[in-house]
């Protein structure tokens, strides 16, 4: 009877990504959304479809999207990280201090930024995976701690002394039109797709997210994996810090304030289940494009950033709520539907 509807889909190890799955699911919805953003953007502003505008806007969301890649993996494994924007702020500050006091060049600065990010991530990872503290309070705590350290050191001041070679990272374009951060984001997306959906490591992530206990008993070194993912997420925040700091050419303690919300919106809109074990990197990448170009369309219509966060908030809740509402009231359409298997 109706009992059999729910469970069986999960039993045979399903491919975590396949063409058929893409066509059936979240990705298709996202492509539709993206098309709507483009149609709406074009209708509301004559400058939206300008190729330079479009490509230039990628610089802004690529930094956020880089963090979304890492956070997606964290959420797939049933953890959560809301400290990445604060990690970004601290990495940015450390780069600023290194530039101001040591007069370092671009390459050492980048390395310092990445190392700071990874270190902060490792702190999260240690507290969560080694000490067994709940990820949500740990990252609420470190969210406050990391940004707080930046605020404590810098007060309400800012550092704007960066070498030109460093700021060039955030302000140079491939072929004169594609921002470097977008290129890096696309390349890393490919790496993440392969890593997550076509390797044993990736399979372990989903195993851990679906059934932590089961994964452990099947020989997955779950705590090491969780530690590595938090560290990786810190590293991605460090990378985002490099691009953002270089693009702005300065750093302040309130840099990237509130970005954690946009990161999580991208991940959740991308179809990653907040309760773990489900999601695709392709979905997250598409969601990043949707949010990024939506932001461009909204900005071109002179809507201030303070109102933009209303849209992102609605999108975050809507992207989770609508499928649930759809499922809840699916019985209204039951006559039209036939279960496929």
């Amino acid at each position: 009877m109706s009992v059999s509807h729910e469970a069986p889909a999960d039993l045979p190890a399903p491919p975590t990504l396949s063409v058929g799955k893409i066509l059936r699911s979240r990705e298709l919805v996202l492509i539709g959304l993206l098309a709507m953003v483009f149609i709406g953007g074009n209708a509301s502003s004559p400058w939206f479809l300008d190729i330079y505008n479009l490509l230039d806007s990628t610089a802004i969301f690529s930094e956020i999207a880089l963090m979304a890649l890492g956070t997606a993996l964290v959420i797939i494994t049933r953890d959560i990280d809301i400290s990445m924007a604060s990690i970004l702020a601290l990495s940015s500050l450390v780069m600023g201090l290194a530039s101001q006091h040591l007069g370092l060049g671009a390459v050492p600065l980048v390395l310092i930024g990445l190392a700071t990010g990874a270190l902060c991530g490792a702190v999260n990872g240690t507290l969560v995976a080694r000490l067994g503290m709940p990820a949500i309070v740990v990252t609420i705590g470190t969210m406050s701690l990391f940004r707080g350290i930046a605020a404590g050191i810098l007060g309400d001041g800012k550092i704007a002394e960066f070498p030109t070679a460093f700021t060039a990272i955030g302000q140079s374009y491939l072929f004169g039109m594609i921002p470097l951060s977008f290129v890096v984001f696309i390349l890393l997306s490919v790496v993440f797709v392969v890593l997550t959906h076509f390797t044993v490591l990736g399979r372990n992530l989903f195993a851990l997210g679906n059934n932590p206990e089961g994964a452990r008993y099947s020989g997955v070194r779950t705590n090491r994996l969780r530690f590595l993912l938090f560290t990786l997420n810190g590293l991605m925040a460090g990378l985002a810090a490099v691009f953002l700091t270089a693009r702005l050419g300065s750093t302040r303690p309130d840099i990237a304030m509130g970005l954690e919300m946009e990161v999580i919106t991208m991940v959740v809109l991308g179809g990653v289940s907040i309760s773990g074990g489900k999601g695709t990197i392709t979905g997250v990448v598409l969601a990043a494009l949707v949010i990024g170009f939506l932001r461009l369309a909204v900005t071109l219509n002179n809507v201030p950033g303070n109102i933009l966060i209303v849209f992102t908030g609605l999108l975050l809740i809507g992207s989770v709520a609508l499928p649930i509402i759809g499922e809840k009231y699916a019985y209204l359409f039951k006559l039209m539907r036939r279960p496929r298997n």
Partner: peptide, 30 residues
């Protein structure tokens, strides 16, 4: 959203946090 739709509280309140912050700007015009 949390009780009826069973959406995790962290997602809901992170979202409403932004929505109401943004709404302050909307009703006050900044």
């Amino acid at each position: 959203l949390i009780a009826e739709l069973q959406i995790p509280p962290i997602v809901v309140t992170l979202g409403t946090m932004s929505i109401w912050r943004g709404m302050i700007f909307v009703i006050s015009g900044g």
